[in-house]
Every structure is written in C-alpha cells, then in structure tokens.
Write a protein that binds this DNA or RNA. Structure first.
Length: 153
DNA sequence: GCCAACGTTGGC
DNA sequence: GCCAACGTTGGC
C-alpha cells in the first residue's frame, strides 16, 4: 500500500467531476511524462491512496482523497487523432502510455498549496520542491497521515 | 501574462 | 552522446 499525489486541472477533471462520474471513477488520461507513466505502470496497486490535487487554477491545493481502482491499461486518448493527447508515434501493438483508474473517496475543504508549505513535516514533499512539474509524485505514509489527520479535518 | 524550471527533440 | 533550442508546466 502506497500513497500518491496526483495533479489535475479542475477545468479538465475536478474532485467534483470524480464524485459524479460513473462508478465514481475516472481513467487518469493525458499523462505524457515517462516518470509519471512509470509510477502508474510499475508501482501503483489497487487501493493505493491518492491526494487529489487541483493545479493551474485560482486556488491550487489538495481538494480531496481518492484511490487507485484499476490495474494499468493503455490510455485510449493516445490513439484518438481528435484528442489533444493523441500520440501518432504510439501503436495498439506497443502502446506508449498506460494509465490507471482513480476512484473518489472523499472531498475535503481545500488544503491550499501555501498551507502545505507551512509545515516542516511536509518539507520534503516532491510537489513542494522548486520547479517541480511532475504530475504524479509519491507521498510517504507520514506525510499522508499528517495531511489527512491534521490538515483535512 | 510572466517567467523559472524542466523534459524532449534533433542536429551534429 | 552532447547540448542548444524549443515547448510545456504551473505558481504567481
């Protein structure tokens, strides 16, 4: 059992969108970074905890909790020429991009990015590192507990 | 809209 | 394999 922080632009997929999706679950489409893909393909397991983070929006921060709800499979958007995530170099035989499904667990009062920065316990979080752009980052059990028990009440 | 930081591409 | 140029991310 591991923990993750996954960024999503709320204009694309917000915590509310996830809550109202069929089965309260959505495929995590659009990741086009190899490191983030590798986390989904190689490391994530069903049931892993997810901090659902809203990025590129007026109030960036952790908006709720989710969980990994599938094993990895090819991201269908890579094969769709009309999709902004279309990848002409990928093939059905050797798909380049794999994803997992993520299921809603709960919505919480937003824990803003600025609030995360206030706590020494979270100082090593990858998402807080200068220049961080990785959309999926591992979270330690201690960080997970601190955020879910102390900051999400 | 700005711009720092980063990942990817492609010429050599 | 190097590295400059380019495109993207994402907070502010």
């Amino acid at each position: 059992m591991q923990y993750w922080l996954m960024k999503s632009e709320p204009d694309e997929a917000s915590i509310d969108d996830l809550a109202h999706a069929p089965q309260r679950s959505l495929p995590w489409t659009g990741v086009r970074n190899y490191q983030a893909r590798n986390f989904m393909r190689d490391t994530m397991k069903i049931g892993d905890g997810v901090l659902f983070y809203h990025s590129s929006c007026p109030e960036p921060g952790i908006a709720g909790l989710a969980e990994v709800s599938s094993t990895p499979y090819p991201d269908p958007t890579q094969f769709d020429p009309k999709s902004p995530y279309y990848d002409p170099k990928s093939t059905q035989e050797a798909p380049r991009w794999l994803l997992v499904d993520v299921r809603y667990v709960k919505k919480a009062a937003l824990v803003p990015l600025a609030a995360l920065r206030e706590h020494d316990e979270l100082a090593d979080m990858r998402v807080l590192a200068r220049g961080n752009r990785l959309s999926i980052t591992p979270v330690t059990r201690a960080e997970w507990r601190f955020i879910t028990e102390k900051l999400m009440k």
